[in-house]
Design a protein around this nucleic acid. Sequence first.
DNA 1: CTTAGTGCAAACTGTTTGCAGAGGG
DNA 2: CCCTCTGCAAACAGTTTGCACTAAG
Lengths: 139, 139
Amino acid sequence: MIKNQMRMTHQRDIILRELRKSTAHPTADELYERIKKELPRISLATVYRNLEILSTAGLIKKLEISGRRKRFDGELRRHHHVYCLLCHRVDNIDLGQEENFQFLPAEAGGYRITGCRIEFFGICPDCKKKTQGDKKDGL
Amino acid sequence: MIKNQMRMTHQRDIILRELRKSTAHPTADELYERIKKELPRISLATVYRNLEILSTAGLIKKLEISGRRKRFDGELRRHHHVYCLLCHRVDNIDLGQEENFQFLPAEAGGYRITGCRIEFFGICPDCKKKTQGDKKDGL
DNA sequence: CTTAGTGCAAACTGTTTGCAGAGGG
DNA sequence: CCCTCTGCAAACAGTTTGCACTAAG
């Protein structure tokens, strides 16, 4: 399995920059929409391909998170996320001193555990505002 | 929002039973394949529709978990999962005394947090066996 | 009887892939 | 100049939906 050369193309570079410049955890097509302003002829397939390549190369992270679309993160340090049940946005969350707590299961059912993901969900500040006064049920 | 009548059809009942009888967290089409043996004329759309209805009614749980297919769980009590990175199966995991630990973030970024999901990943017993002796890289 | 639920096929959403040509190193 | 990458379109996987018929209560 010889590691082949990864070229830093203009498209790839812009995708990487765009991803690093916010903490918004965009989906492939959110990224595509933003990048089109700068590079109008880029195709969605290129965005998908590069996100895959960049995450395999370890330059970005692919998030396994609620919702049906994949999300990507330019921040490589270990951290966790909050997911808004209403608008589906994803933010970072600070776990304080718990951050380094090694949360390991008593009984792993024979699994070799390689990692753990902690995800919070709830209502984001904007959606809280929008539903202020409403009686939203089921949440 | 008047709750309409949910009829317990033969299909729905079998789906519910099937889901309750194992801890395998099946996807819609795994369930479909199993149920077809008993009910050969059932359609995949019916399985999807019923899983949606049953989870809205709170009789089963829809899992937000790694992988691209939705998974469903007949166990309603709070528990967490392990995901096999190789074969994608999902098992329950026992967190021991940590189970009731209220893992709440120091700084929720203005979110109203309604819940938290903890997911482990790794290699399941079967895949461990299969890769025994191999030098698998990247895990 | 009424109206929720069914099977089927077709639509839809998010993602991946084959191909011929472009451009990074 | 080679070979990775690109844009495009078409394929794909998983899920949802419109419709006319069926069956639960």
